[in-house]
């Protein structure tokens, strides 16, 4: 995993979770933490940037940013700190509570009242490791344009760094997901699937195999 030779040689020194670490420059922060024996690194999951777990705060000279450790590379003099997992979901809703597609916007405002209070600090946009136009997505959602808003969040990995970044507690990642879910729930009605479901309702699938076992 971490034992491949370095082209060009030369190691870098950095600090991870308060521990001084020496690493190869092609290593990610996760690999550098492992190689350096940094204790208690538990926020690691997929190692390819889609599970959103390995959230780090990164100090690079006077600049502080956030990132995913599995996609960030070791550099001389930087300091990385694994952040605790996001807080529990604050906005409560169940899709099955929605019965009428006409009142989605009203319901959205009840569930996410903060979404219309964006103060345009851009903290969410700067925090997003996936380059999502979070602020625009929130504006679309607040305007009831749920399909377009949801599309803006296609690449969201739910690291929730934008939620931590938002001073109005909008929880943008969850707003984006709400928009995607509500769009599927009310508008995804594919004829090929519906037709097959209807056929199966008329004549459920059975096979020799299933008959034997039941």
């Amino acid at each position: 995993m971490t034992d491949s030779a370095t082209p060009g040689g030369g190691t870098v020194e950095l600090v991870i979770d308060g521990v001084a670490v020496r690493a190869e420059p092609h290593m990610t922060i996760v690999e550098a933490a492992w190689a350096g024996g940094v204790p208690r690194v538990t926020g690691v999951g997929c190692l390819e940037g889609v599970c959103g777990s390995c959230r780090i705060l990164l100090r690079h000279g006077p600049d502080v940013s956030v990132a995913l450790a599995c996609e960030t590379f070791a550099e001389q003099g930087i300091e990385a700190l694994f952040l605790p997992a996001p807080t529990a979901v604050r906005h409560q809703y169940e899709l099955t509570d929605f019965t009428d597609g006409w009142d989605i916007q009203a319901r959205f405002k009840e569930i996410f009242p903060e979404a219309s209070r964006c103060r345009h600090c851009h903290g969410c946009v700067r925090s997003c490791p996936k380059g999502i136009v979070v602020e625009e997505g929130i504006a679309l959602a607040a305007a009831g344009r749920f399909r377009e808003a949801g599309e803006a969040f296609l690449e969201c990995v739910m690291c929730e760094l934008c939620d931590t970044a938002c001073p109005e507690q909008i929880a943008p990642a969850h707003v984006g997901l709400f928009c995607r879910r509500i769009t599927a729930f009310f508008h995804l009605r594919p004829p090929n699937l519906i037709h097959r479901l209807e056929e199966l309702r008329q004549e459920p699938f059975s096979s020799a195999g299933e008959k034997e076992s039941s």
């Binding site: 952040l83 851009h122 700067r126």
Partner: peptide, 22 residues
């Protein structure tokens, strides 16, 4: 009270607050 402009401040203080609460 953090205004949200600086990641260091908003995410930093939110993390501090959260861990202290814990």
């Amino acid at each position: 009270s953090s205004c949200g402009q600086c990641i260091s401040c908003k995410t930093g203080t939110a993390t501090i607050s959260r861990l202290l609460d814990r």
